[in-house]
Design a protein around this nucleic acid. Structure first.
Lengths: 204, 204
DNA sequence: CCATGATGTGAATCCGGATTCATTTTGAAA
DNA sequence: TTTCAAAATGAATCCGGATTCACATCATGG
């Protein structure tokens, strides 16, 4: 026995992985998944192409990992808001608004996470991602129903509808190449939020 | 001068093009865009691969054309319903229901048209497609506002929200491999329709 | 029947980026 | 210092389907 992994080694390995993921994340945030190439990631991370494969079995896996990390953060932000106490309606409003504001803040990333075609592995993660959002929103709606704020309704479907409404109306338009200059977007946010609130609040 | 295109020739050319488009459409309907290969299209149409390129400059163009034709039909169906007379609310209901029913009738095609990643050219068409749907729905909402059935609202955003809600809640779930066996889907349709109607009808 | 250009053919080529792997470098222990 | 194994390297390879193209066939008008 003349070699054994040690603390230092392990730490270094972790750092490298982190570096790779970080560079990849940034690349995605700037140019979407389409802009990601193993060679450029390697270059930007100060590594050789082959080295990436010491840490990730394939580009698809790397992309999936990046996706997972970014979306986890996003969902966390929303779920924290959802978990805050108080009436359901304002919580729902807040949750929807956060989604919207964050999306408009980093449109490229938002587009990448919600719509951009990548590959099967990432698409699978995307499903999880969307479902997570739906779950968070669904929980709020359930609370509202329990407390009598909202009428009874199919929370699963309703939650999906809200996710779809947000995605389509906010990010869909971003699919056009040039990010349309805006500011009146905040008006859009209002419209979307009241759309969803009306829908959930219903009226007998 | 020893050759000139004639009626017969032109007709034949058209037939071949039609055949190609038809075969391609069917392939997409059965297996999505992923299942389309120039070679198999050619084989199924009884042609050589190269022949396809006599009629379409590239696979992307062929796909885009297929997409365009199929979606035109779809939008037409909905817009006819939208244009029928009567109050806005029932028209909106009908329009949404038609979308839903058709989507569930051919899930693979619906997924292909709404979500499946293909290529830039098709993605551009998809944008047009979605916008067309939104326009149709938006017109109904405008009618409703004009007639006092619905309160004033941002019709453009609202229309997008409805398209998103439909897409996400109906077709999103279809992204899972095995088309989940169903029947209770019609319950989902009801939930989606009332979601949208509540949203648009609002409540003072 | 001939000349001409359109149309059809399908095997060979192209393509661009992911992936591999023989080689070199580095770190650990003895 | 030496030896073993992990880690790094990056040029060469691989890949699979779109695309091309040299050649054959067909339709047209003379």
């Amino acid at each position: 026995m003349a070699y054994r992994a040690t603390e230092k080694t392990r730490k270094h390995k972790e750092e490298v992985q982190h570096k790779i993921l970080s560079v990849a994340r940034q690349t995605v945030a700037e140019g979407g998944f389409a802009a990601v190439h193993m060679s450029s990631i390697a270059a930007a991370a100060g590594l050789a192409t082959g080295t990436l494969y010491r840490h990730f079995p394939s580009k698809a896996d790397l992309m999936a990992e990046v996706f997972r990390r970014v979306t986890q953060r996003e969902v966390l932000v929303m779920s924290e808001i959802a978990a805050s106490g108080g009436a359901a309606a304002p919580r729902l409003t807040d949750a929807l608004e956060v989604f919207a504001r964050r999306a408009l803040q980093s449109p490229v990333l938002a587009y990448a996470l919600i719509f951009e075609p990548v590959d099967t592995l990432v698409d699978r993660e995307r499903l999880v991602f969307r479902r997570s959002y739906a779950e968070v929103l669904g929980l709020i709606v359930e609370d509202g129903i329990a407390s009598g704020e909202f009428p009874a309704q199919n929370t699963a479907v309703v939650a999906n509808c809200m996710v779809g409404a947000l995605a389509e109306s906010l990010i869909g338009p971003l699919a056009d190449e040039p990010t349309t200059t805006t500011g009146d977007r905040s008006a859009d946010i209002q419209a979307i939020v009241s759309f969803c609130l009306n829908a959930v609040t219903g009226h007998p």
